[in-house]
Each structure stands twice: as C-alpha cells, then as structure tokens.
Nucleic acid binder design. Structure first.
Lengths: 197, 197
DNA sequence: TCGATTTGCCAACAGTCGTTGACTTTCTAA
DNA sequence: TTAGAAAGTCAACGACTGTTGGCAAATCGA
C-alpha cells in the first residue's frame, strides 16, 4: 500500500492526478444519472482510462460512490445572525449549494440515488442528522429541533427535486429573488416560528 | 389478439386474473425498489408465475412500468371550498393519497424512479401539468398559477420524499395533525397568499 | 544505464438483465 | 369426444454489469 502519499501530501504523483480525474468523472455521472445509471465503464470512458483502473484506484463501485458522495453543507451559524432573517439565510445558502461553483454536486449525487439505493438514503439521513439538525437546534427549543429541521428539510429537498432533478418548468423558471421571497418565510416559520404540539 | 375481452368487460377470464396479479406485483415492487431495482424476474416470482408470462401479457418492461405508473390524484375542486381552508384541504388530500387505502402506490412508483428514469420524470411532470396545476389555476390568477402550483408541488413532493421514501425519522414521527397544522399554512400561502413578482 | 516499481491496457470471468421461441399442459367450444 | 385455442413452462439468446489476473509500457531511483 502507498501509505506514503497519504501522509505526505507533498507530491502530486501521476497516480493522484488520474485518481482525481476518475473521482471527478464519477461525481459528474453519479450526479447526472444516479448510482445504477452510471456504470464503471461510463466513468472510465469519461476519465479517458481503462475500466480496470477505476477498480484499482477505488476498490469497488460502492467505495467509489462512497468517495464521490461526500457532502459538506457548510451551513452558517444561525445563532450569530438576526433571528428574523433565519429563513432567508437558509434559502440563500441553499441556492449557493445547488447553483454556486464552490459546492460540488454532492447533494445531487445523494438525492439522485437516495430513492433506490439504501446507502445513499442512509448517507442523506446522516447529512440531515449531523449537519442540518444541529444547526437548527442552535436556534430552536431542543425538544422541537428534530421536527423543525425535518420540516425545513422537506421544503428544501422538495425544492431541489423539482428544480434540479425533476426540472419542473415553473420551478426552474423561478428567479433567485422569487425563491427567496416565497420559500424564505416558510423556512423562517418552520425553524423558529410559533409551533403546535 | 383478444379484442373481445377488452370491449366486453363481462368475463373475468382466467387471463385477466393473472394479468391483474402481475400488475399488482409490479406496482408493489416498483413502488418499493424503483424501475431498475425491480426486475421482471422479481415481479414474476411475486406473482407466482413464469417471467416469460410477464412479457407475454405486457409487451416489455417499459410497457409494464407505464401500466403500473398510472396516477389519478382526484384533487378536490378548490373553487367550491372556503378560500381560507385551501391549504388544509390540499394537505389532507395529500395524506389520503399517500396513506389511505383507496389510492394506490402510483405516486410512490413515479417518485421512486423519477430521479433516474426519464420516462418516470416526464410522467411526473405530466401529473403536475395536468392534475395539480389546473386545480390551483381555479383559485389563483392564471398568470401566477404555474408558479403557485410549482411551489405547492415542491413542498408536497419534499414531504413525500422525507416521510415515505427517505423515511427521515423526525418526519416519519409527525402526526397527521402536526403535518396539517404546519404544512397547511405553507400551502395556503403558496396557493392563494399575497405574492411577489 | 539498469532494474524495479508504478501505471496502464486487454481479455475474460461469472452473474444478471430483458426478451424470445419452442414445447407442454389446460381449458373450452362444437 | 375431439380439435383448437389459450395459458403456462423451460431453456437459452445476446447484451450489459462489476470485477479479476496477466502482461506491456512508462516512470523513477540508484
């Protein structure tokens, strides 16, 4: 094993570059066609390399998918902002995640496969439990945090589905401002609004 | 061809029964595992029949899926009800569709496969365009109907994703009353609330 | 320059898939 | 009762899948 390259990030050896190429191709194709729809041969062709190399660098398709489906939402610390603009803050971050160049296609990869791949579904539940829920918990009664985070997620995942995966025309046509002004208040109420038992 | 059995619904001939068995098994498995995840051999096994029969009765897997993925939401006529309870009406109907015994698993079939199967995606867009949007259009300015229906759909599809497909624990735990009281107002605002350009 | 390690390609494996055709059994109508 | 259609079984096809091992080429340190 090459435990050298992992501990010493100094040399971008030849293999590291092709490894990155494979991962990039995989992320692109998994995001576009899902786990089943993207074959290892497709990934290899997109990376201009032999299918066997994909297995050599990543041990299996499952492991390749696991490496490709890494998500870090980098949600802002809600406690630090004006309590009245929490909904707006969330929806703005949502648009950055899905349309900004910085964030990768991680969420698309997960959402595209989560309906028919249990690993992707579990990973998505992990993102909820470890990234969304904790952030909502900082501004809500801990007893309600789960429910509030769940409602927030239902709206945001639904918007992502309609706009980026399903591509429902009227939802695709929405401008950023329209999304912020319509969905923002919803998230605001779900996150910190008055609530029912 | 047996054009007799189609025009005269009188005799539930032997073949009609197995045909129905196959379709029922297909709807169950497509709803649970999606288009790719449910093989013809699985459907046949569930219907206690030979895989070749599935092809004989339905000409191909695509055609079987098309027959299984039939959806009729039977949305209520919103124009006839109190304008202030439109959101509540919609969310109540949503719960009936997804949890009631009358409505089949049609929506689950479509949603489960729509992220990785273009036919299912198109069919889902059809449901939106031909069933959801027209109903919203009866209570909203026709110019806004598409956008309003899109927002309603984003919330409802997201809730369905989180609760029935992804099974996000806090969303699964929500009672019907909690869903109605939290999501109802959101739909109310999306459908007929004051709006932005 | 030489030898060894890495990097890459090729062919093939075992399995699953949708689908097909030939065959046998069962039912039905005259 | 008997001919014929309908319903069902079985084996196999070609294509595609993830994965593997062997072998050639390139790279790099000594």
């Amino acid at each position: 094993m090459n435990f050298m390259t992992e501990n010493q990030p100094k040399k971008p050896s030849k293999s590291d570059r092709t490894r990155a190429q494979i991962l990039e191709a995989a992320r692109l194709l998994f995001a576009e066609h899902g786990y089943d729809g993207a074959s290892i041969r497709d990934v290899a062709a997109h990376a201009s390399i032999d299918p066997a190399m994909v297995i050599r660098y990543f041990r299996s398709k499952d492991e390749l998918f696991a490496r490709a489906a890494v998500v870090d939402l980098q949600l802002p610390a809600l406690r630090a902002i004006d309590r009245n603009t929490i909904g707006e803050t969330l929806i703005r971050r949502f648009l950055e995640i899905w349309e900004g160049a910085a964030s990768g296609p991680g969420m698309a990869i997960l959402l595209r496969s989560a309906t028919s791949n249990e690993f992707a579904a579990e990973k998505l539940r992990d993102v909820f439990g470890n990234q969304v829920r904790p952030v909502v918990a900082t501004v809500a009664d801990p007893a309600d945090a789960g429910r509030r985070a769940g409602l927030v997620s239902s709206q945001l995942l639904g918007l992502a589905m309609c706009r980026y995966l399903l591509r429902l025309p009227p939802v695709v046509a929405l401008s950023h401002d329209e999304i912020i002004q319509n969905v923002g208040p919803t998230l605001q109420r779900y996150a910190v609004g008055e609530d029912v038992s």
